[in-house]
Design a protein around this nucleic acid. Structure first.
Length: 620
RNA sequence: GGGCUCGUGGUGCAGCCUGGUUAGCACACUGGACUGUCAAUCCAGAGGUCGCGGGUUCAAUUCCCGUCGAGCCCGCCA
């Protein structure tokens, strides 16, 4: 075989191996099919034993240098990974000198020959560990200053510093890997919806302020002074109008903006998978999303998830778990024990019940042996979550321990143990208050205890649907009923009694995290008006705020339903990150600063003049 | 809006509670030695407004108050 042919064959073999490697986040599909810029022949991290014997041109960043005086090793890194470059003074004096002088993170171009490493010097911890590149020529394309922090995985660096030099942070293999996982997953999502006949339509970024829902980001208009656009919280109205337009099936990977305080899993700008389907019911939407998640989980985690997902109504979820996003990977379900304390001598419980409250709790298996100190430490955990107090009863060796033992009867303890399923060695936690507060506190405690007791199984994916949400929710602040989902959500029946009306709205919950939500929409103008009425939106107001929707609905609306979920959160789960900023290329801090660019910044007087704006002293 | 935690050479941390020696360690950096390492090794060296402002004190990195920045949580948000 001619050398050139042999090389090509070898490259093909290497390519095949690469395909098998693809589980990792940084796997580059079809890399070798592409022409590399700058005269490079290979990517550093792609070289394999099959490439041995070939002359290559590589370029990358100096990840590490090992200088033995007589021989210098450089680890040259590009997005595919590192490869070892060897420079010998005898073979190539110039290259040797360049290698000795190249500082870490400098960009260098290397011409040389790939060869198998000498016997016993292969590095099994490296994908390129069987080979090395004997440098014939090394050219420093760009010398680097000493970086402000080590560009390596598993190095603890203050996040503010990482964000200030985000380009260096993203150079770390782990971060590059997340960005590439993000790219590939988006591709899978697009392909999935394309195969199913969904049409990708872009919707405006400068649009009308949304009256209900989150706080808007506003953009002042230059041409129409005194008026503002809003950045979209979601393309909700546009996607419904696309159904009126007859698009039938729409999807979009779209940036949404909500001006609310940030959290570990919440960012101002986030990326949503948005979809809408005409003539669809809940079942159609469920099937699409179950198939999508099954495909993504299979492709990126190699996991077969169980479809269809279990379903739980909102009421059942709140009753059993105290929340509409339950983590069902462990038990410890809640039990309402109000009746057990119907005639209790315990004043705290009695008065809570008198005021229309309830008593509820759950059993934490194995926590009955905790010390008094550990158990008392749970009380502030409960009050921090809004509970008035917390009663703990530890069952151990046939005895009950509790700070309120003298106030509660053995019969009450027996009833509570029975209801919560607590046995010897277990701990019962009880909270008495208004049902909503009890639920919030117990949900938090349940998660806390499960984590502390090590009862949360890893590598388990509990997807579920929560259905039949309330249509309305009472807003203390505004003293009126507001939409729990959004105002276009169809009620289950025409009965719009605000306290009891249930909606054809659904959430996907995974391991106790809400991924997204959707609903069947109202397509009857008369029903839509009645929903507005309950929320105190008059005819005039409705016309002003939602006039375009109501108008559109006069001209033939297909029944339709849709869904939206946060892709950033899905990526957090796929990559095992605990912070949303780690799956976003250029995120902001929790106070909204962009440390890289210095945004937000003060506007110039000229900018303000053009917009007809004036910044005055802050006042109420 | 509220609560908690953190801020010390380029990086990561210790010191602070119990005020007073020259602010210590590791990595990185600089110089030297070294021909098979892969967190190379060995020797030497340089590098600090202890976030910022004020107070207490004979004396503050250390105690107190304020402020700025970062993180987590509640409120808010689907």
């Amino acid at each position: 075989m001619a050398p050139a042919l042999r090389r090509r064959a070898a490259r093909r073999a290497g390519r095949g191996r690469r395909r098998c490697d693809r589980g990792g986040p940084g796997g580059g599909a079809g890399m070798t099919e592409q022409r590399l810029a700058g005269g490079r022949t290979h990517m550093c991290g792609s070289l394999r034993a099959g490439d041995a014997g070939g002359r290559v041109v590589l370029a990358g960043w100096v990840a590490r240098r090992r200088d033995h005086g007589g021989v210098v090793f450089l680890d040259l890194r590009d997005r595919e990974g590192p490869v070892q470059v060897v420079a010998h003074p005898d073979d190539a004096p110039e290259a040797f000198r360049a290698a000795s002088e190249a500082k870490l993170e400098s960009v260098v171009l290397v011409r040389g020959e790939v060869r198998l490493r000498p016997e016993g010097t292969a590095n099994a911890g490296l994908a390129t560990g069987e080979v090395e590149v004997a440098a014939g020529d090394i050219e420093v394309l760009s010398m680097s200053d000493t970086p402000p922090f080590p560009v390596e995985d598993d190095v603890q660096v203050e996040e503010a510093l990482r964000l200030t030099y985000r380009y260096l942070d993203l150079r770390r293999p782990e971060m590059t890997g997340v960005l590439r996982l993000r790219h590939r997953m988006f591709g899978t999502v697009r392909q999935f919806f394309d195969e199913r006949g969904f049409v990708d339509v872009e919707t405006p970024t400068l649009t009308k302020s949304t009256p209900e829902g989150a706080r808007d980001f506003l953009v002042p208009s230059r041409l129409q002074r005194g008026k503002v656009y809003a950045l979209p919280q979601s393309p909700q109205m546009f996607k419904q109008l696309l159904m009126v337009a007859g698009l039938d099936r729409y999807y979009q990977i779209v940036r949404c903006m909500r001006d609310e305080d940030l959290r570990a899993d919440r960012h101002w700008e986030f990326t949503q998978l948005d979809l809408e389907m005409s003539f669809a019911s809940e079942e159609d939407v469920f099937e699409v999303l179950e198939s999508l998640f099954a495909r993504v989980w299979r492709e990126y985690l190699g996991v077969e998830i169980r479809v269809p997902f279990p379903r739980l109504t909102y009421d059942e979820s709140v009753a059993r778990f105290g929340t509409d996003k339950p983590d069902t990977r462990f038990g410890m379900e809640l039990a309402d024990v109000t009746t057990a304390f119907g005639a209790t001598a315990f004043r705290a419980f009695a008065s809570a019940i008198e005021r229309g409250g309830c008593v509820a709790g759950f059993a934490a298996p194995g926590a009955g042996t905790w010390s008094r100190k550990e158990l008392d430490a749970l009380v502030p955990e409960a009050t921090a979550r809004g509970a008035t107090g917390l009663v703990w009863i530890a069952l151990e060796g046939g005895q009950a321990r509790s700070p309120v033992l003298s106030h509660i009867s053995p019969e009450e303890i027996a009833a509570v143990s029975e209801a919560t399923g607590a046995g010897d060695g277990d701990l019962v936690l009880l909270v008495a208050d208004q049902p909503g507060r009890v639920a919030v506190a117990l949900d938090g405690l349940r998660r806390l205890l499960a984590a502390r007791l090590g009862l949360v199984p890893e590598r388990r994916w509990d997807f579920l649907w929560i259905t039949e949400f309330p249509v309305f929710e009472w807003s203390e602040e505004e003293a009126r009923w507001v939409a729990k989902h959004h105002p276009f959500t169809s009620p289950v029946s025409d009965d719009l009694e605000p306290e009891t009306a249930r909606a054809r709205a659904y959430d996907i919950v995974l391991n106790g995290i809400e991924l997204g939500s959707g609903s069947v929409r109202i397509h009857r103008p008369d029903l839509q008006r009645r929903v507005f009425e309950v929320m105190g939106i008059t005819g005039e107001e409705a016309t002003d705020k939602f006039g375009h929707m109501l108008e559109a609905f006069r001209f033939g609306v297909p029944p339709h339903a849709g869904f939206a979920f946060g892709l950033d959160r899905v990526l957090m789960l796929l990559s095992g990150k605990e912070n949303i900023r780690d799956v976003i290329a250029f995120p902001k801090t929790s106070s909204g600063s962009e440390l890289l660019t210095g945004a937000p910044s003060e506007p110039s007087q000229e900018q303000l003049d053009q917009l007809g704006m004036r910044f005055g002293p802050l006042g109420r």
